[in-house]
């Protein structure tokens, strides 16, 4: 509870504040941008149930993004600045979540959903005992909601890979895995080495990115292979990033990101807004 919080942003050194900011932006931006992409499936998903489920996931991710943007307010930011006024290259999400869906490919949405949610699970576990109490306090709430996401993704992965269906589902999954896996590895890319070291030394996160990546791969790879899919993974180091894949974490994004950001900020800019929208004004 808030009353039990001891460490606040004021207690941190400048380096620690920067590290906390980098950690939070990564968490918040991943969730926000993934939600933006999920909403593209609204009224377009293959079935009514899948439409509702993915829309609900999108709403969950927006809620989680907000929990993290809330903590960023401790560091002097306001939500509307972070979402609507931040330059494209100041966003820190992994490029996995910004990729467009090729030609309404549901398998792409499901593979992305699965790869992301396993990573999210590991990442949250590493924050459970964070030395920054506001981080640790929010983790349980998010985990409770994320559990359903992972179950949903696995369920769909299994259905699409079903041999009996004989409808090309597995081929589509394979194509999506081949396409998305190099981007998924950017989930574990560092902002920069110094920042990551500070995140660990300050106890904000109790695992290194390499450990998270290894844990992630040890769950994801056998699962995908168990579905009869080939995983495009290097022999030695799972963190071997393709040099041609922008990492996102360092502000380098794919072209799709500029378009997506343009779209979700357009109304804000057209209306000349300078604050977040409220549903209703307070009555006189």
């Amino acid at each position: 509870m808030a009353s039990a919080e001891s460490v606040t942003a004021d207690d941190l050194s400048a380096d620690e504040r920067d590290a906390l900011e980098a950690l939070l932006l990564r968490l918040a931006d991943d969730e926000f941008v993934l939600a933006e992409r999920y909403t593209e499936w609204q009224v377009r998903s293959p079935t009514l149930e899948s439409d509702l489920a993915l829309s609900n996931n999108a709403q969950d991710e927006l809620g989680h993004a907000r929990l993290w943007y809330d903590v960023l307010e401790d560091l002097g930011y306001e939500e509307h600045e972070l979402i609507y006024e931040r330059e494209a290259d100041a966003w820190r999400h992994s490029t996995l979540v910004e990729r467009p869906f090729p030609g309404g490919d549901w398998a792409d949405a499901i593979v992305r959903h699965y790869l992301y949610d396993v990573a999210e699970k590991r990442r949250l576990e590493a924050l459970e005992d964070s030395a920054y109490p506001k981080l640790a306090d929010r983790v349980g709430k998010i985990q409770a909601e994320e559990r359903y996401h992972l179950e949903h993704a696995q369920n769909w992965m299994e259905r699409l890979a079903d041999d009996d269906a004989d409808d090309g589902g597995r081929e589509r999954l394979q194509q999506a895995v081949d396409r998305l896996f190099p981007y998924a590895l950017t989930l574990f890319a560092p902002v920069d080495d110094e920042t990551e070291a500070t995140i660990e030394e300050a106890g904000f996160r109790d695992a290194t990115l390499e450990e998270l990546a290894t844990d992630w791969a040890s769950e994801v790879v056998p699962f995908l292979e168990g579905l009869g899919l080939d995983v495009p993974i290097g022999e030695d180091d799972v963190l071997d990033l393709d040099p041609d894949v922008p990492r996102g974490r360092d502000g380098d994004h794919t072209d799709a990101w500029a378009d997506l950001r343009e779209e979700f900020t357009s109304t804000y800019r057209e209306l000349g807004r300078s604050g977040a929208t409220k549903i209703m004004e307070k009555p006189e």
């Binding site: 509870m1 969950d60 991710e61 809620g63 907000r66 709430k141 549903i279 209703m280």
Partner: peptide
Amino acid sequence: IYGLVVEDGHATVDMTLTYSGCPARDMLQD
């Protein structure tokens, strides 16, 4: 509601929401 304290006319309320994505958050808090 998780807690309420009133001291010298200043009320501090701790509350939660059922759901992180609760769209009624601002309205309810106001």
